[in-house]
Amino acid sequence: MKIISLDPRVERLEFREEHWQPQRPLTAGEQWPTYEVFHMKKRGTQPVHVGIVHAPTPEMALAFAKEQYARRGTTVRLWVVPSDQVYATSPEDEAIFATTPEKIHREPFAYKVKEKIERYKKSQKK
């Protein structure tokens, strides 16, 4: 039976109900490997990872990244990196970073000299 559609474009394709049944399924990789996308919003800011695109080549990955991640606001530049070229620490290694916030000797606020200076000045005045 022919599918009756409100959409003239669909009407022209003359779908029959058997079109609703799957023909040949997509095979693995048919929709291409992925690229990680980095987006720079403004000159002088860091490029930030915003997501992925599927693409057959880096050039097409950039074209898709523009459509996908530069749809609003400002963009000055896009980067794409093949996902299989990214090396990452493993979640089990998260503990390596756990004590960093405790290492306050690396932070400016751990160094308080004002009181000492005031005390010294007072002692000099006497």
Partner: peptide, 17 residues
């Protein structure tokens, strides 16, 4: 067109994030 553009040397890996 997807097949014509396919580059067989690059294989799919699960994206990270």
């Amino acid at each position: 067109i997807r097949q014509a553009l396919q580059k067989p040397e690059r294989s799919y890996v699960t994206p990270f994030a």
